[in-house]
Simulated assay, not measured.
Amino acid sequence: MSPYFHDIDPIAFQLGPVAVHWYGIMYLLGFAGAWFLGERRRRQGRLPVSHEAFSDLAFYVMLGVILGGRIWYMLSYVSLDWIVHDPLAIVRVWDGGMSFHGGLLGVLLAGWIWSRRNRVHFFDTIDFVAPLVPIGLGLGRLGNFINGELWGKLTTEPWAVIFPGALEDLHKTRAELHQMYLAGQLNGQARHPSQLYEFALEGVVMFTVLYVFSLKPRRRYAVSGLFALLYGVFRFAVEFVRIPDAQLGYLAFGWLTMGQVQSLPLVVVGLVLLWLSRRAPTLQPDPAAANAAPVSTKEAA
């Protein structure tokens, strides 16, 4: 069985001079899916605030994801020369290059600001948001796959993929690479589709586990802790078959990556939050408060 040759156009369609990228569409779908599910759960009283307050939270979180994810990526994974030579690179999100860890920090900051303004306990907010995040996470990984970026290591697995972007040293056009593929000359260049592994783990599995876990009222910190633990473990594991960013390479031991370094603290935080949840109160769903009061002060920080 021949490996799959990645030949997906990252541009979905053109609107005059504007190219609409699949990567951006994935983010829009992620935000939309999280908003609709979040609004449904809000009406169930899982976060006893008004529709307007929830809409504000969704907007804050969206800004936190985009700004935090892009800024952290540009500071952690790219040579800082861009600050002087190409400062506008920070706004070219459509080219790819978003950091989950930066997006998470952005979400936490956004959640803290919103919680303070609406007098809701910070971790009640984060526990509510956590099951929604894997929707965008999974779709973002699909965007990475469509872009043909963040590929994995060489493999002979039957589901392996040949990524033209990983063959730049051959100095061939995409058409020439495709002809080589048809002739069987690129079979040794097949790689793990690590983006799809992350889509499955960080998207499908995390969403399923967190959604089902949060169907019943849980003690404060529990949902957030499970989110942090799962993401930290899944990301750390996938990094073993994913090629590190070329400008960074392996940081130590011939295998440790920046993604793993930044994921380990999440494992620790997740365990700590789960431990704290044992004695924490449980926020009971209150549909009446969510659909009547402008903003709930219940469990205020």
Results as ranks from 00 to 15, higher is better:
S2K: 03
S2N: 09
H6G: 07
D7G: 00
P10N: 15
A12M: 03
F13M: 09
Q14I: 12
L15I: 12
L15Q: 14
A19M: 09
H21T: 04
Y27S: 06
G30H: 10
G33E: 05
A34C: 10
W35N: 15
F36M: 15
L37N: 10
R43F: 09
L47N: 15
V49S: 14
S50N: 10
H51N: 02
S55F: 10
F59R: 04
F59V: 09
M62W: 04
M62R: 00
L63Y: 11
G64E: 03
G64F: 05
I66C: 07
L67G: 15
L67D: 14
G68F: 13
W72N: 03
L75G: 01
S79V: 01
L80P: 00
V84Y: 13
D86P: 08
P87M: 08
A89K: 08
I90H: 10
V93C: 00
W94R: 10
G96R: 03
S99Y: 11
F100M: 10
G102F: 00
L109K: 10
W114Y: 11
S115K: 13
R117V: 05
R119G: 04
H121W: 05
F122Q: 05
F123I: 01
F123P: 03
T125G: 14
I126C: 05
D127G: 04
L132N: 02
V133P: 01
V133Y: 01
P134F: 08
G140I: 07
R141C: 05
R141L: 04
L142I: 14
G143D: 03
N147W: 13
L150F: 06
L150Y: 04
W151R: 09
I162D: 01
F163E: 05
P164T: 00
D169N: 15
H171S: 08
L177S: 11
H178N: 07
H178A: 09
Q179A: 14
A183Y: 02
Q189I: 00
H192P: 07
Q195G: 03
L196H: 02
A200E: 06
E202Y: 12
V204Y: 11
M206Q: 12
Y211F: 11
V212R: 02
V212T: 02
F227W: 13
F227R: 07
A228R: 05
A228N: 06
Y231N: 08
F240Q: 07
V241G: 08
V241T: 11
A246D: 03
Y250L: 10
A252W: 13
F253D: 08
Q262V: 05
S263W: 01
L264S: 00
L266C: 14
V269T: 09
L271R: 15
V272P: 00
V272L: 15
V272E: 03
L273P: 02
L276W: 12
R278L: 08
A280M: 14
A280R: 15
P281V: 03
Q284C: 11
D286K: 13
P287Q: 07
A292I: 12
P294T: 12
V295K: 02
